[in-house]
Design a protein around this nucleic acid. Structure first.
Lengths: 184, 184
DNA sequence: TAGAGCCGTTAACATATGTAAAGAAAAATC
DNA sequence: GATTTTTCTTTACATATGTTAACGGCTCTA
């Protein structure tokens, strides 16, 4: 991890989180909510998405050991533009805004941890943005598949398609094209 | 700003920065550099871009009062994938990695500041990513123009085109199309 | 001031993706 | 286990963008 904690600090840290088990297709955040929680995924799969006139556009797919949230709403206290749902039955560690602020007070080191997490998150976002600028949809698919092969079995393809910025039809065509190339 | 400092703290903070004046089209970071500095823009305009086989793809255009950097290289100590150049003659406040680490030591509050900056940076990145998912190139152009009208006079259009993920030809067509709509 | 290079626009053509619709396969639900 | 729903693929057609090239205008500079 990014910081080291002694036993007492570890206890303070852990007691700030609460455990929650949720079924699949469960809505954690819906559009317009002012969210007061972020979720550390112990087990399961979550999807953050935009609701574009009823069309659901995937913003991100969160795996085990990641913090999932609608960050702008959580950090700025504004209504969320995004929705957060489980794709699979999931086990979450929930951190409320209240508990988070308490952690900042009693455990100043926590600022270092969240700074480093925010920095990592930004670097990751930068990679995704660069991929939209530098790569074709087909290249984006290839890179995604290399790093997330398991998700094609765990997630409906249309959710992956919208994450890549293409339609399910186009994703299907790309997959077919690459399969034919492989065969040759 | 995000934190309050007393006079002594303010002095420590300010003395960590050094002033630098650079001409236009000046290279601050080139591909492969391991960057040791970030730049606060007092005056001027900077462009972060990718070098894609000699083609320069704009990653971001930094204005006055922003921190510009190749963050992944700066934070992780890895060779930069990005280049940073001035578009205009610029006045910069330079913060070296060394001075930054010193600030973290003597001014723990500095963690709060950089955390909040990193959070803002991520929220901004999220807006840009959502625009690639939700908007057409034409819509991206319109939104960009609404918020950065002045840049069309300060920046060559092909640099804006690549930032929007399109070619200069396509940007020109979009502008013409919108101009014709306006006339009607 | 002449020349070189950069810049924005336009045209012609190629093509990948979007849209709409239909159907088959798989999964979920009762 | 039957039915409903979801998922994925495929087809046909429309279109916006990419590519290449050419041109005129502008800027910088030598």
């Amino acid at each position: 991890m990014f910081i080291t904690l002694d036993n007492q600090e570890k206890q303070i840290f852990e007691s700030a989180f609460s455990f929650r088990e949720v079924p699949r297709n469960f809505t954690l955040i819906k559009e317009g909510d002012i969210t007061k929680e972020i979720y550390f995924i112990n087990k399961g799969l979550l999807r953050l998405f935009y609701n574009n006139d009823g069309e659901h556009i995937t913003a991100y797919i969160y795996r085990e050991n990641l913090f999932a949230a609608s960050y702008d709403s959580f950090l700025e206290g504004t209504p969320s533009y995004q929705c957060l749902e489980t794709i699979e039955e999931s086990e979450l560690l929930v951190l409320t805004k209240e508990n988070m602020e308490h952690l900042y007070k009693v455990l100043p080191k926590f600022n270092i941890l969240t700074r480093k997490i925010a920095e990592q998150r930004f670097i990751n976002a930068q990679r995704i943005m660069s991929s939209f600028l530098l790569d074709s949809p087909e290249e984006r698919y290839i890179k995604f598949a290399e790093q997330n092969n398991d998700l094609f079995l765990r997630v409906p393809h249309h959710m992956i398609a919208s994450y890549l910025g293409i339609t399910p039809v186009s994703l299907s065509r790309i997959r077919k094209r690459l399969l034919n190339k492989e065969k040759q």
